[in-house]
Nucleic acid binder design. Structure first.
Length: 556
DNA sequence: GTTCTAGAAC
DNA sequence: GTTCTAGAAC
């Protein structure tokens, strides 16, 4: 609705272009000279003298320390290159989001970067930013290579944003390829630690190891990957020109990006706490919760940010109504950003309704009577919809906001015990019906479905629903965390040990009894059907396996 | 989470 | 040729 058509080439951009020194010297010089300010007035920036109090953006690295040290986020225009998003609409969104954030970031600065001084998106944004009277000290545009802002552009940015692809993989072209290339292996590894993938509209903050060239050479401490909407039919998740959705997603992307930056600024304690909090609650209220539902209440959003690195603009419903009194610690540091599980969080978002299924059942089990085996105040028990063995049930926690093992802390220990006890009860019930079964109780390190759930699964794995490597490895590698171990870890360390999905779920296929390797799922399954070897000793210890005394003697 | 299916593996 | 995997879409 706000996207008023403007002329293709705003007058001010032309004047800016003309005022760029007509120098073909080195590209570096040209980039420096082309450093443009939000006001659109370039001529005085071409040299080194800037307005009173203004940043020495073009200055040497040894410039004014206080100004140079201002936290600065350099970001490319999201989705307007390869993803072919309309420039007018994109520039409106950029300016709109910048206007909302820029005054809430203390002395921190936002810089829109593009390689070419002919960039149309830069000129559009400059024009619109000056129309909105955005403080040009805190927001400006810059022409240069985003991976060489300090070494070649003389601009110190401690955080840079990357227009990433949904797989968060290097390659492709443009900014993504350049940033991954400049960041080196260290960036790839650090990225994988934070997230495996990202849906459009989301951002993930990646702290950069000091081994990364971007860190040493450019002084970049964090990279924030952002995925914007795609309007290019040649690329995944194309929106087919649906600009209603596209604009919404692009807005979410910038909100996520700026919130991510805000969390970095806050963690570096350069901002009074209140300002970011206020900002976030304001953003949240204005866009995401028109219904005024209270936001979630993480007790330490910073910690959670670091652990999960996701900054979602879209809040899942986490009203405080349920179990509020036990969970809401009202920590003064409580951020208002809702961060979901890093792997499924990105997948879970709006389009992943299946990922909500357990949550819906846990919150309103009476509406799903056919699926539910047992209901208590704390948990519900249900048959897995796609059982991976003859017997496979889930014990689902009914705590609001407890999505996965990563969320579990010491205060949930009693809940874990309750879930384990109920899981045992059901295993024993099944054993009573068929004493040849063997059960294992445990959690997935990174579950696909929201809402903490304990798997109670028989070890025959005799099921047509067990179809692929991921299915097998999710129950037969360290990705599967035995309930007894989880309780022990939470009790002694305050949290459970989690295993990486990428490394665990792609492991070779091995029989869970004799540990023999098999080339594919069908061959593995036919082996498993016949293998009568005893279980590995680790599984026979500490009650990790639940079986009848008769079976114990066979296996021992 | 599943389904569908292209293309790799056999 | 068929079987199987793995990525995209849902």
């Amino acid at each position: 609705m706000k996207f008023l058509k403007k002329t293709d080439a705003p007058a001010s951009s032309e004047s800016i272009s003309k005022s760029i020194p007509d120098s073909n010297a080195s590209q570096i010089t040209e980039e420096k000279d082309a450093c443009l300010k939000g006001t659109g007035s370039l001529s005085e920036n071409a040299g080194r003298e800037l307005k009173e109090g203004e940043e020495p953006v073009v200055g040497s690295a040894g410039g004014d320390v206080s100004l140079k040290d201002a936290p600065t986020l350099a970001f490319p225009s999201i989705s307007t290159a390869d993803f072919q998003f309309d420039l007018e609409k994109a520039s409106d969104i950029i300016v709109d989001k910048v206007a909302k954030f820029v005054n809430k970031l203390g002395n921190a600065r936002l810089v829109l970067v593009d390689l070419s001084h002919k960039s149309k998106i830069l000129s559009l944004v400059r024009t619109k930013a000056s129309e909105k009277n955005i403080d040009s000290n805190k927001f400006f545009t810059f022409v240069g290579d985003i991976t060489r802002l300090h070494s070649e552009g003389g601009l110190h940015c401690n955080v840079i944003a990357n227009a990433a692809n949904w797989r968060l993989k290097p390659g492709g072209g443009g900014v993504n390829a350049a940033i991954f290339s400049a960041g080196g292996q260290a960036l790839e590894v650090a990225t994988k630690e934070q997230a495996k993938s990202l849906l459009p509209g989301n951002a993930v903050v990646v702290p950069l190891p000091s081994t990364s060239p971007l860190f040493c050479r450019e002084g970049v401490t964090h990279v924030i990957h952002v995925v914007g909407p795609n309007m290019n039919p040649q690329r995944p998740n194309c929106l087919n020109n649906d600009y209603i959705k596209g604009c919404k997603v692009l807005q979410e992307a910038y909100t996520s990006l700026f919130e991510g930056f805000a969390s970095i600024v806050r963690s570096q304690s350069k901002l009074p706490k209140g300002s970011i909090e206020n900002l976030q609650s304001k953003m949240t209220e204005s866009q995401d919760h028109p219904d005024g539902i209270p936001k979630d209440h993480f007790t330490n959003s910073d910690q959670k940010n670091k652990r999960e690195g996701l900054h979602k603009s879209e809040r899942s419903k986490r009203s405080k109504g349920y179990r509020d009194e036990t969970e809401d610690a009202s920590d003064s540091n409580a951020g208002k950003v809702n961060l979901s599980n890093k792997s499924d969080g990105s997948r879970t978002k709006s389009c992943g309704s299946w990922a909500q299924a357990l949550y819906n059942i846990a919150m309103q089990p009476e509406k799903h009577r056919d699926a539910v085996l047992e209901i208590s105040d704390d948990v519900v028990v249900l048959n897995d919809l796609y059982p991976k063995a003859q017997r496979h049930v889930l014990v689902v926690a009914r705590y609001e906001g407890l999505d996965c093992l990563a969320d579990v802390r010491k205060e949930h220990l009693q809940l874990l015990r309750t879930m384990h006890a109920l899981g045992l009860k059901w295993a024993e019930k099944f054993l009573h019906d068929d004493s040849s079964l063997v059960f294992r109780l445990g959690y997935h390190s990174e579950p696909s479905m929201r809402q903490l759930h304990l798997h109670v699964i028989s070890q025959d794995f005799d099921s047509t629903h067990l179809k692929n490597k991921k299915h097998w490895n999710s129950f037969n590698t360290a990705f599967f965390r035995d309930s007894v171990d989880v309780m022990e870890e939470v009790s002694s360390n305050g949290k459970a040990i989690l295993k990486d999905e990428d490394s665990m779920l792609s492991m070779e296929l091995r029989c869970h009894r004799c540990r023999s390797a098999h080339p594919n799922i069908p061959r593995l399954k036919s082996h498993v059907t016949n293998c009568r070897a005893s279980f590995p000793s680790t599984l026979l210890q500490k009650g990790r396996l639940v079986l009848t005394p008769c079976n114990v003697s066979i296996d021992a």
